[in-house]
């Protein structure tokens, strides 16, 4: 059996008495490229916040890398690109290099400074996401897809074992979405990073993911993409609460 990097057991969560997650059981196997899909308000971002320890479950238990979350200390094993990262202040005067360097701030620790070695790590991360040509450009001047790459690089400097991305491809055009998924697959295969990816792009994610999870209050589906694509439209509309078309990006 493969070891799991995240395990959620019977999780319940409510915002001020408004239940959002109920009885969620969930596991991310090491090495997975997991797509998390579901309707708006289905609780995807909430689930991620629970994993990151930003919210505490009302009920149930979470473990990370085999440890109960309240004992877990190695937070730099987990990289996170939030849904809000593409709404950052576009006028913020920071170069790509500077933004990526922020990923190391906590790791370096208080009262210490960036060393030559850190700078190497930063440049490497920028290269891995294919942004070397832009290293000294202001990040606000880049396209949405390029900005997402920069935020991924910011996570990569910590050598994460799990990378969580909340809707990273919103506003990225089709061709660049394709390149973006290629990048994710590369990280998944070459660097052995486990990926959890929230997306509404049900067509393209099924081409790249190893696992698909559908969340709407509770888990409605957890399995491999082939199974998911074979679900009938009726299953899906039950799950979404309205009819859907699975948009395919095959041409």
């Amino acid at each position: 059996m493969t070891e799991s990097v995240v395990t959620m057991n019977k999780i319940h969560y409510a915002y001020d008495n408004k239940p959002v997650l109920s009885n969620v059981n969930f596991e991310i196997p090491r090495g997975a490229l997991m797509g998390l899909i579901g309707p708006n308000g289905g609780g995807k971002t909430t689930l991620i916040k629970l994993i990151l320890g930003l919210l505490k479950p009302d009920n149930g238990s979470i473990s990370l890398f085999g440890q109960p979350i309240n004992k877990f200390k190695e937070w730099n094993k987990i990289g996170f690109v939030s849904q809000k990262s593409n709404t950052f202040n576009k006028g913020f005067p920071a170069t790509v290099f500077e933004v990526v360097s922020m990923g190391l701030t906590a790791k370096i620790g208080y009262l210490k400074f960036l060393t030559k070695q850190h700078k190497e790590i930063i440049l490497q991360a920028i290269e891995q996401v294919g942004m070397s040509d832009y290293a000294h450009q202001n990040v606000g001047n880049l396209s949405g897809g390029q900005q997402q790459r920069v935020f991924i690089a910011r996570s990569l400097v910590n050598d994460p074992e799990l990378l969580i991305l909340d809707e990273p491809t919103v506003g990225v055009d089709h061709e660049n979405v394709q390149r973006f998924y290629d990048l994710l697959e590369r990280l998944n295969n070459k660097r052995n990073i486990t990926l959890l990816l929230v997306t509404h792009d049900t067509g393209i994610i099924t081409e790249h993911a190893t696992d698909i999870v559908c969340l709407n209050r509770t888990l409605h589906f957890h399995g491999d993409p082939k199974e998911y694509t074979s679900l009938t439209d009726r299953d899906l509309s039950n799950f979404y609460g309205h009819p859907v078309n699975v948009v395919s990006h095959d041409h």
Partner: peptide, 10 residues
């Protein structure tokens, strides 16, 4: 730059 990211990263 990013308050949320800063707190998540510790």
């Amino acid at each position: 730059f990013d308050e949320e990211h800063a707190s998540v990263s510790g």
